[in-house]
């Protein structure tokens, strides 16, 4: 069945502000496909973001939308989810937003295992502020603040999320919207904190400085860099050198979810209080 994308969008706000060919649009589209497949009601869904190109996504979504401060989307989202545990809460953030300025909130949301879906659009750069390097910029790459090449080691966001306790972690890439949509759907359906990293192209800020100013070229670069988990398992290590593995990286359905824990706490406390009354 065809997805009625514009039903989920504020159609009067289109065309969106992103550069021609920007991968964020593909992520948003996959996200809508996933929401549609799950049958989520627009009224029951909140989309929260911080600051950056990616963080403009909620403005286009016809839902309960919250464009917050830089790095802090998860903190606002935690407030929304704790206050309305039966509603759907999605956070969409860039790599800098989520893992640099928002890194602390990220690991703690993972640790709590609160039922929020976190989509990280990882394009390895600060796009909106003019192409400065981020915690995921590859070693040696050029950015506005690494004119001589990047010497900072990059984060592996998936491993970071797993280590911190997220209970669903997957990685997709914008060259394959179908696959991305599947992981987004599984992550949204998962009851717990889920992290879906979407490798994306910022040809305008990253590509331009690294010989890939054309979106098609940069999406192809991503396509050549990624290997599915299934394929990677059959590949010799030397062939995997420099490759990024996509797929469902981690899943744990056993750990208690945070809002469940809190509602049980309320029940316990109220039962005890009832005895006194």
């Amino acid at each position: 069945m065809a997805v009625d994308y514009l039903h989920y969008l504020r159609a009067d706000k289109l065309p969106h502000m992103w550069c021609p060919g920007c991968g964020i649009g593909i992520v948003v589209k996959s996200m809508i496909g996933a929401i549609d497949a799950l049958g989520w009601d627009k009224n029951e869904t909140a989309v929260v973001s911080g600051i950056g190109c990616t963080s403009r996504a909620p403005g286009y979504m016809d839902m309960n939308t919250l464009h917050t401060t830089h790095g802090r989307a998860l903190t606002f989202a935690t407030g929304v989810k704790m206050a309305a545990p039966d509603k759907h809460v999605i956070v969409i953030a860039g790599d800098g937003d989520s893992s640099a300025i928002g890194g602390n909130h990220f690991i703690h949301a993972c640790r709590r295992n609160i039922d929020i879906t976190m989509i990280i659009v990882n394009n390895n750069i600060y796009g909106m502020t003019g192409g400065q390097f981020s915690p995921t910029t590859p070693y040696g790459a050029k950015a506005a603040t690494t004119p001589h090449g990047n010497i900072d080691p990059a984060f592996d966001l998936g491993q970071l999320a797993i280590g911190a306790g997220a209970t669903y972690v997957a990685r997709g890439s914008v060259d394959n919207g179908r696959m991305l949509q599947k992981y987004l759907k599984d992550g949204m359906a998962h009851h717990g904190f889920s992290v879906i990293e979407a490798l994306s192209n910022c040809h305008t800020q990253f590509g331009r400085r690294n010989k890939m100013s054309d979106p098609v070229v940069m999406v192809e670069w991503i396509a050549n860099k990624v290997v599915t988990k299934a394929k990677a398992e059959k590949m010799p290590p030397e062939e995997l050198e420099g490759k990024i593995i996509t797929g469902e990286l981690h899943r744990n359905d056993e750990r208690p979810e945070y809002t469940d824990e809190y509602s049980q706490l309320i029940q316990r406390v109220q039962k005890k209080a009832g005895v006194h009354q």
């Binding site: 065809a2 994308y5 514009l6 969008l9 289109l14 065309p15 969106h16 992103w18 021609p20 060919g21 920007c22 991968g23 964020i24 649009g25 593909i26 589209k29 996959s30 496909g33 914008v174 060259d175 919207g177 179908r178 949509q181």
Partner: peptide, 13 residues
Amino acid sequence: EIQCPDFAIRVVK
């Protein structure tokens, strides 16, 4: 349709 970042093209029945 899936890869268009701009919701500009749709292919349907």
